[in-house]
Design a protein around this nucleic acid. Structure first.
Lengths: 143, 143
DNA sequence: ATATCTGCAAAGTCTTTGCAGCACG
DNA sequence: CGTGCTGCAAAGACTTTGCAGATAT
């Protein structure tokens, strides 16, 4: 499955139906950025497709994650956050005040590999997360 | 509040009572390592102090986190994990198969600061998390 | 046509809260 | 003794599931 295919194509080629609800979810994620909680996605999608249910949101987000179309973030605020999988590898900075999540391009992992610091761990890395929590510029100015 | 004080002292000096339940929770965390979920902590503590309730576990874990005695980890498995705050700053490697969480001393953050990569972000970092998910040696051998 | 998907409602999990009685200091 | 703590039970928040009817291909 080519990662360059758009979400709709991936769904169809995997044998899933392209329902109105799925279209709406994908469109919301595509146009509004994110990451959003399931709750926020329900609100946003409801504008486009009223009557959509929470179970549909959850079932489809899970499917989209499974297909690699959507990534699920476990931020330390107790909620799951979802966004379209981007082309680029990245990490996040999270504001402790307003909760805003921003992508950053800084990735410490490659450097660790280069420095061979990981070799001693006897551990086969699959993925990694790097998150910086703090105060964003907007909230700093407000204070 | 000196970080070198033991948990019992911190509690007392902060005006909290040193109840049997709190002793048991702290002892379990101290002897069994961790990190453990609230559920696991309930089981472990129940061996020592039967009759203890979930609300007591949660209330006290929250208190201990607030006092800096315990740290709360948000691993991407949907549960909160708790362990005694160690002396040293560290991060975690998490096995996707068995869920084991191990501390590692590798910290990419200092290097980022040295490299001044963070300066452009217009963000005031407070804390950070670095987690590597993958397959631990035990699970690799099993496969 | 038919296998999949949705909405609804109900249940499941983890966590929090209100309250009366207990226990630490 | 008195405040704070616990156990109990109930509720809250988020997520999952079973099922009958609707929908995409």
């Amino acid at each position: 499955m080519n990662i360059r295919m758009n979400p709709e194509e991936v769904l169809k080629n995997s044998g899933y139906k392209l329902t109105q609800q799925r279209r709406a979810i994908i469109e919301v994620l595509r146009n509004s950025g994110g990451p959003y909680t399931a709750n926020e996605i329900l609100s946003l999608v409801s504008d486009k497709y009223s009557g959509i249910n929470f179970s549909t949101i959850y079932r489809n987000l899970e499917l989209l994650v499974r297909l690699g179309i959507v990534e699920k973030l476990n931020i330390a605020d107790g909620y799951c956050h979802f966004k379209l999988t981007g082309e680029n590898h990245h990490h996040h900075i999270i504001c402790n005040k307003c909760g805003e999540i921003r992508e950053i391009d800084i990735c410490p992992f490659d450097e660790l590999l280069r420095n061979t610091k990981l070799e001693d761990l006897d551990f086969e890395p699959v993925e990694h997360k790097f998150e910086i929590y703090g105060i964003c510029s907007k909230c700093k100015d407000k204070k």
